[in-house]
């Protein structure tokens, strides 16, 4: 378990480095395509870095509160929702987190839950009223443990970083493509001046890169996100010592998903217990979450021989 977390940290660092390299390459390619000179390639990389910095700053500063506000979450105290608060506190103790996370409720009939906060001191857990209504205590415990697992494994931090980098790449690709459409004429003129087949080949390579980079970045990002879901499920099993609780909860939640009922920010979607943007049960390489059936199967495997109990 600990080894899995360590290995995951290394993989995530690698992922972010790769994404950052893609972003720089992307900036260079666009700079070259639009300006037609090597110097403009460096300028493009610089612009890419600036976009990344601004996005990161926005996310770091107001991250949690913006996300929570956009989901219409209201903070609750122990007296407002004693059982939920107690369950969160129990799981905080099991996860040995240093501080009690803030607890939020979202008034929405769709059962779901998510965690945000870049470190364990700033952690927030939010659940929908639909989740509270449908789940028993054991199941709620499994879900909360999964969310605290995300925080304990630092998924919130890594996925925010990765999400911001991916966002910058996509943004840059979008802007670049648009500029090439109405700025195409000037580009052709400048490339004509330089002439030579080598430039043309470089141009084509840069164009291919500009088109492929966002795609590759997405694939990487989603693969990493799915891996982290499995890890958070394993953490949940470690904290509760009762994987069937989460398995039952996943089954209930998946059967109730009506996509896009809660306002969802794409950057947070990996933090939800079940991806609110995807249709239930679907699997694709562009999914932040692994298929629910597979998650349930792995959870029940952890449970061992014990047959899945019927939920209370």
């Amino acid at each position: 378990m600990w080894e899995a977390i360590e290995a995951n940290k290394r993989r995530s660092a690698l992922l972010i480095a790769t994404l950052a390299a893609l972003l720089a390459l992307m900036g260079m390619a666009l700079g070259f395509l639009l300006g037609g000179k090597p110097q403009t390639a460096y300028f493009g990389a610089f612009v890419g870095l600036c976009v990344w910095g601004v996005l990161l700053l926005v996310n770091m500063l107001g991250g949690e509160s913006v996300l929570l506000a956009s989901a219409n979450a209201r903070e609750v105290s122990h007296d407002d929702a004693p059982q939920l608060y107690n369950v969160v506190e129990e799981m905080r103790i099991a996860a040995a987190l240093p501080a009690m996370p803030r607890v939020f409720i979202i008034d929405a009939p769709v059962p779901n839950a998510f965690a945000v906060g870049l470190n364990s001191e700033r952690a927030c857990v939010a659940v929908t009223t639909g989740l509270l209504e449908r789940l028993g205590r054991d199941e709620l415990q499994g879900v909360i443990a999964h969310e605290l697992g995300h925080i304990s494994n630092r998924d919130t931090l890594f996925m925010t970083l990765a999400g911001v980098t991916l966002g910058a790449i996509v943004l840059l690709a979008d802007a670049g493509m648009r500029m090439m459409f109405w700025g195409g004429g000037s580009r052709r003129r400048s490339s004509g001046k330089n002439g030579g087949g080598a430039t043309a080949i470089l141009m084509i390579a840069a164009l291919v890169l500009a088109i492929l980079a966002p795609l590759v970045a997405r694939l990487l990002y989603f693969a990493c996100s799915r891996q982290r879901e499995f890890l958070a499920d394993a953490s949940s099993a470690q904290y509760t010592r009762y994987p069937a609780g989460l398995a039952n909860a996943l089954r209930k939640i998946a059967s109730q998903q009506e996509a896009k009922k809660i306002p969802v920010n794409r950057v947070v979607s990996p933090m939800y217990i079940i991806n609110p943007l995807a249709a239930a049960g679907s699997f694709s390489v562009f999914g932040t979450h692994p298929p629910t059936e597979e998650r349930i199967r792995r959870l029940l495997e952890m449970q061992g021989e014990t047959p899945p109990p019927t939920s209370a």
């Binding site: 059982q83 107690n86 129990e90 103790i93 099991a94």
Partner: peptide
């Protein structure tokens, strides 16, 4: 009912604290 929730939750917290202790000792 409210007290019962508190009491059972406290019992849970005690056992989860012991579990976390054992996890940290094992590690």
């Amino acid at each position: 009912l409210a007290l019962q929730e508190e009491l059972s939750s406290t019992e849970n917290k005690i056992s989860f604290a012991r579990q976390a202790y054992n996890d940290s000792v094992t590690r």
